[in-house]
Design a protein around this nucleic acid. Structure first.
Lengths: 347, 347
DNA sequence: TTGTACGCGTTATCAA
DNA sequence: TTGATAACGCGTACAA
């Protein structure tokens, strides 16, 4: 049986569609009695306006889309995602918007963009951004990028990944470490770090800058780079790989806390003491970082604010054609207990 | 300027709207040359079909809604939410669906339901469920409830909260504890535990059943009940409240891990040793539970599976009119290091 | 391949 | 002031 629609109600109540619509959306334009009668009949017949039809008329969906570079399960496993969502959620709640999570559709971001009935997009850490941007432009709704390399004319919210990474590396270097392994989030670029882009690129840039200040660079011996999945397992495996080598690093700098935590767990398992035997630094400052033993020294980024500011900007763009601005949020090193000076070099 | 629409393309290409539509959705019905021509022109003019209009025609949005009882920020702060989302996400990814998070709109769940352009709803832990159900029925799309008291004829996925709670309480009782505090998630019912409903009610029921097996009940002296917010702060405050009393409990059973973790932190701060001075049990088995020191003994629920199974059912209901079934998923006690027998009674 | 009806609610315009 | 009429938005299905 077909859904009850506005026409059914209008007929039953002996009024026009307009009257029914007014009864719901603009009751003051109708007499009290008419409104009551219409609402009563609507209630009886179980009428509820079709949101799609309404969006068709109003040109608004009341929804913003969060465009995700990976399938939902992988994204939500990322521990800082909830905090980011929290920031988005605050603005949504305030503005009466719903949030649509938009992962690639059958593997295609393009398809996902084209299909999503939203008033605007937030994009999170998109990699092949240029192609996606073309589709977004074509799609014809405003969008704000988060954690993508900023492009002129495209609203973008970022955090100071380079600065934070630089601080982290400096910290370790200043304590005297000279045998250091960097654990990068797997890029598909096989360790060709000069090709890193986005968040990955910015963090790498920060590490390299600090190294340079000390006259160092990645040399595959004292200063090493490994790529691994941004998971606990990734960190554990990397630790094991490193510990098979003849010369062990005295410090490991990971591009994400979850990798760093994997390292600490593997190190504990191997009977090492962190930080005495091995210093470990993370990135992100997820909740877990302060809970693990030893508490993780890491770079904090304001994930919640990132979501909040990006969403606020998007809402403005949707409503008022605000200017497409760029904004960079600060990061800062949080010193906890997973870093100390290296042991004296053994003879 | 108005959006480019299908008519513009049709005119420019000198074909009908239908042809343009086919070029996108059913190219095999058109000659190769026509398709190419249309697609080229569409590309040039930056055309992208309007998803709302498409939904209007097809009667499908390709989106399911997750109906939330609280504003987004509060929900995502809940540590087991990501796992639940992960389960939903798996099915969505597989079925090519997007997920819309639907918090109350301007405080009204009703408004949120009516406004959401989705093909079906998942509801999570709704409290005033009966009223909401009426609206959902009226809305005319299938829905599956999760963590609500099951109602005949309404598809429902639950976990065995009562059984898990019972196991937790039995465990503590079997070790000899007889001074026990239950920390309930704040209900708005001021400790009138017989009125608890939903998850809260089921867990309470389990605790009471185990107590009864030992001939005990909540007596406000040996066996106490406190309500608090399901946050770390809630747990910490509850600990402090309890420790001001003349007679301290030897065990605290919390309805959520996050409360339990708050208790452990407050106890540590107060110089107590968990579990020697105080046993603590949680509920949910969030990631943090195994990381905190001492590792938390708690009741594990299959959050991911819960999301997965509920979504699978919803998809079936949307596609094929499956039967509205009820399903209950098992919970189990995870014994870690936050529980041990009580000290001998001091003279 | 095309023309046309259709889905459904909103809103500008008009009439009483 | 109260209400009706009709146009509108846009893609899709179906008959031709």
């Amino acid at each position: 049986m077909p859904r009850i629609n506005i026409k059914d109600i209008a007929q039953k109540a002996g009024v026009s569609k307009t009257a029914v619509s007014f009864a719901f959306n603009n009751p003051s334009r109708l007499s009290e009695a008419t409104v009551q009668q219409i609402l009563t009949i609507a209630e009886e017949m179980g009428y509820s306006p079709d949101p799609v039809a309404r969006s068709m008329s109003t040109g608004r969906t009341g929804t913003i889309g969060l465009l995700l570079p990976q399938p939902l399960p992988e994204i939500v496993r990322n521990p800082f995602f909830p905090e980011f969502l929290e920031g988005i959620g605050e603005v949504c709640a305030h503005s009466g918007l719903s949030l649509m999570l938009v992962p690639p559709l059958k593997g295609s971001i393009r398809r996902a963009i084209i299909n999503a009935a939203v008033d605007g997009f937030l994009t999170l850490g998109l990699e092949e951004f240029k192609a996606t941007m073309v589709v977004l432009r074509q799609r014809g709704v405003p969008f704000v990028t988060v954690d993508s390399d900023p492009i002129e004319g495209v609203p973008a919210i970022n955090v100071d990944d380079a600065g934070g990474a630089c601080q982290a590396m400096r910290h370790v270097l200043s304590l005297g470490h000279r045998q250091i392994a960097i654990l990068a989030i797997r890029s598909g670029k096989q360790g060709h770090y000069r090709e890193y882009v986005g968040t990955l690129g910015a963090r790498m840039h920060g590490y390299l800058q600090a190294l340079e200040e000390y006259g160092l660079t990645i040399d595959r011996r004292a200063i090493r780079l490994l790529e691994c999945a941004s998971t606990e397992e990734g960190g554990m495996e990397s630790f094991q790989t490193l510990w098979k080598l003849s010369r062990h690093p005295t410090a490991i700098i990971a591009m994400s806390d979850i990798i760093a935590i994997g390292v600490i767990k593997a190190a504990n398992t191997a009977g090492l003491h962190v930080p005495q035997d091995l210093s470990v630094v993370g990135f992100d400052d997820i909740t877990m970082a302060s809970l693990i033993h030893p508490a993780l020294t890491t770079v904090a980024q304001p994930s919640r604010e990132k979501g909040e500011i990006a969403t606020r900007l998007l809402v403005k763009l949707i409503e008022a054609n605000a200017k497409p601005v760029h904004q960079m949020l600060p990061t800062r090193l949080i010193e906890r207990n997973s870093v100390c000076p290296p042991r004296r070099e053994e003879p």
